[in-house]
Design a protein around this nucleic acid. Structure first.
Lengths: 227, 227
DNA sequence: ACCTGAACACCGTTCAAGT
DNA sequence: ACCTGAACACCGTTCAAGT
């Protein structure tokens, strides 16, 4: 906070020194950081302004809407998903991209919330989708099967991202939840039976289990219906 | 509205006649209807009160929170998913249940939003989950694989429900979106390529395509790793 | 016992006013 | 050109007051 503070006692000086000029990027960046820390639901123009040392209304000089900030946040983190390397074969490329995408969803749990609120047809979503579709089409899938495969893979990632993000972030974690569930032996016996696996099982091994089944299925389908 | 209205000109009389006594069920029922019609995001205590011909504050006599209403809505619609018939084999039972679940998500697009906000470990969610886990376990899956399979199926359903619910409900539908997308030929060529299939393809055939791949994969896995 | 009006602490957003 | 205070129409929720 006080790092780089100039040696002067003029309060206005230090204030202006510490306050970089506002900009669209700085606002969106601050919004991402805020949402990572406190969740999107508590992100408000007033609070975001305070975070930037500025009144809420100042934000409207660089951004026309709260929605524009939200869309910007989506673009920001979706852009971080690495571009797949098609050289190593479609299956490996798809697999690593799905994993990378899940990583982004895991580090920014608000992403899946915003995608639902704001839709999945923003520019960065489309760009990402386009690369994946291209990969599948080049692999030999027909146009229709390319679409089906994409939907399936997207469904898998979104489903897991959803599951990971669901519930309020302040709430109990997996282990605590498992404790609660185990008390419900008689009401939900089958749930109780898998609680030990809930507790020990890694989220990502689950994801990979399903991902491999999907990839196996798609590969087999491609063999039977080459484009 | 005016059905069964008594033949009197006393305004207060007709008002009290038309207004059934408030109750938790009536409030939650009205909330479901309101959300179906106008979306959850615009559901407020004041508006819900108005819908019931009552002031917003009256609701607090039958419900302690807005959150209690939201949880009640989830319970209400999840309870509608028919219980699977295990007699016809696990695969058929799972398949029909997944389809029935998707139907519920499709008729109540707000459900996936609320599940994300409120978490997936409410009573009705657990009850549904317990039945599915039981089905899989009886089919011969190990406890661990039962869990994996459930997660995968839930991921598929939630992923598609998510995709169906994403974007604001007032927005353009599939065909209009496809029109917009087709204008982006040069920026997103691969997206443009599958637009015709987007437009004509039924949401549910997509879902079934993926569901069958998942079921095939699980069946094969069960053959290799019987519980 | 149930309903209500006023109030409180919040929202997003507009707009005229300041520098 | 950028920032701000006051204001508007909304939130969920509380509470004392009405019947």
């Amino acid at each position: 906070m006080t790092v780089g503070r100039p040696q002067t006692y003029d309060v206005r000086m230090t204030a202006t020194q510490e306050r970089l000029p506002l900009s669209r990027e700085r606002i969106i960046g601050a919004a991402v950081v805020y949402a990572d820390r406190h969740g999107v639901e508590s992100l408000s123009m007033r609070r975001l302004g305070a975070e930037l040392g500025v009144e809420a209304m100042s934000l409207y000089n660089h951004v026309s809407n709260k929605d524009e900030i939200l869309d910007g946040m989506i673009d920001d983190v979706l852009g971080q998903i690495p571009i797949p390397d098609p050289g190593s074969g479609w299956r490996a490329a798809i697999r690593s991209t799905a994993t990378n995408a899940l990583d982004v969803f895991a580090t920014h749990p608000w992403l899946v919330v915003l995608l639902m609120q704001r839709g999945t047809y923003g520019d960065s979503s489309l760009a990402f989708m386009d690369r994946m579709l291209g990969l599948l089409h080049e692999a030999g899938f027909s146009a229709e099967d390319t679409h089906h495969s994409w939907q399936m893979l997207a469904g898998h990632v979104l489903g897991y991202a959803f599951h990971h993000a669901s519930g309020d972030p302040e709430a109990t974690d997996w282990r605590e939840r498992a404790e609660q569930l185990s008390r419900l032996d008689d009401r939900f016996p089958n749930v109780a039976k898998i609680v030990p696996y809930l507790a020990k099982c890694d989220f990502r091994t689950e994801f990979d289990f399903g991902l491999d089944i999907i990839l196996d299925g798609l590969e087999a389908h491609l063999g039977r219906h080459p484009g």
